[in-house]
Design a protein around this nucleic acid. Sequence first.
RNA 1: GGAGCGCUAGCUCAGCUGGAUAGAGCAUUCGCCUUCUAAGCGAACGGUCGUGAGUUCGAACCUCACGCGCUUCACCA
Length: 593
Amino acid sequence: MVPREVSSLIGMQYCLLGTFFVVILNYGGTSMDGKTQVVEAIKKALPDVNQEDIESKIERPKDNKNGDYAFPTFFLAKIKHQAPQMIAADLVKEIDQSGFENVVVAGPYINFFLNKAQIAAGILSDIITDPENYGNANLGNGGNVPIDMSSPNIAKPMSMGHLRSTVIGNSLANILTKVNYNPIKINHLGDWGTQFGKLMAAYKMWGSEEEVKADPINTLQKYYVRFHQEDKENPALDDDARAWFRKLEDGDEEATYLWKWFRSESLKLFMKIYDLLGIDFDSYNGEAFYNDKMDEVVQMLEDKGLLQESKGAEIVDLEKYNLNPALIKKTDGATLYITRDLAAAIYRKRTYNFVQSLYVVGNEQQNHFKQLKAVLKEMGFDWSDDIHHIPFGLITQGGRKLSTREGRVILLENVLDDAINLARKQIAEKNPDLKNADEVAKQVGVGAVVFHDLKNERLNNFDFNLEEVVRFEGETGPYVQYANARAQSILRKAGNPDLTNVNMELGDADAWEVIKMLGQFGETVQRASREYEPSVIAKYSLQLAKGFNQYYAHTKILVDDDEKLARLALVTAVSDVLKSSLSLLGVQAPDEM
RNA sequence: GGAGCGCUAGCUCAGCUGGAUAGAGCAUUCGCCUUCUAAGCGAACGGUCGUGAGUUCGAACCUCACGCGCUUCACCA
């Protein structure tokens, strides 16, 4: 019952890394951002209003004819006993306009137009001088954040549901790194439980070694489904399964051998998918890892007098949290899911001394995590508040929940293969001379699937539709990748000139629309980290790609004039930020496609 | 019944802490490759923001009630 060798090794290595993770990063740019400038100007004209009020009222107009920032004066009407229009008209006279291109009254609003060329140069220069660190912030002070993610079940194929947990967790890890947390990606494998009893029973009845070796997961899956079909007719099968699981728990040689074998075969196949996705983990400590750590937890509960007997089972009452009691031990003395998770939570606190602990697990388990936190709270662990369940919506097919038992699954492998093949076909059509076409097809195909999963709010359910997932046009991953590839293509044609010291002042409206978005990257990253929401980044990348495509369509970049190098700086900066955004999502950005 | 999430254009979804005529993509129709990648750009069409009250100078957003959908509610994970 010793968990995988690999896992403990990697876990240990990590701890060391975590301890030494002190890095000096460049946080944010050097130029003053537009909003601060607006706040300063208003503050001087309104000395008796406090700064927070001003800051909170300032907004970014949807329509750019209303300026880059706007200040509504409604809230001053009561204080000044004047109509907002009057206040705005008076106020604008008091404002020092020297740092702006224009400051105008529009009814009850004061609209600020920034000095575009100057701000543009500041933003572009910030990006180009240090593209890697552009948008970084120090929100986390290097604190450890274990992320429980992916967590597929051994002997079952990875489904679209696991993809969600995997890519959301991975993206959150990337985002948290950018705001200076130290994420620890934990693959909490489903490598223990009564399903192994069923699997062993099924294998002994109908299985063969050759068959399993040829196609491990699908074969095991087949046994599992068949077991569930037949035990409806023949309930005695369940007793057989229970007996096998008992054997496993008691360390029976054959059972243990089969367990290890199933586990390692499964893991091999999972690794292929993780490689394709470009995702790795810091720990593979799954459920089995906590087998020997639950007694202590039960003892602690006992010592603190939290354990009660109810209907023959051991529970922790959570009445005062308005929750159902947490079942710690079954009538037969066996532990349950929550017991294991309690052990895991405590282990993680001890091992990583986390500042936050995240669980990227489906929305349908939210009750479980509420209970988990409540029990830890009852145990006197204040750090229970640092545990956050990051739920995500259900994937359905034809409106129905996917069910492994009923064999209704969407195999992730198939989806990825379909996407890659389609990408390969498109390349053959649109860019037949591309050298590393197979590699790019992988990047584009996988990118489409991953991006599709991250583009909408986590909690939205979605009904699986292959055509939609592997779509390459419109609001998709390939759309963003394509914008970057176009940018790279221009830079190649221009001979990749050194741009570090060129004049980057661009004042035209088309360029400004793009540059303004570039300037919003940092706040976007912070919002994504605050809300644990990768879709914020995905949406941003789409918007930036769209802005760039528009610029590209309307502005000829490679013409020899005074602003050519400035335009190339813009193209470089766009590519840098698009790459950063995609990388935060875990999506590759090929230079050609 | 308790708890949670959702309801915005034909479909899929944005809409940041309430703010100026509610925005994209897909689909449909129509334009744009004599050279920076058309996986693109542009235009048209399309919405009583589930319903009803309330708070507010102002509500898709906040409060309450109701309707519909999904998830979950002790011996699975």
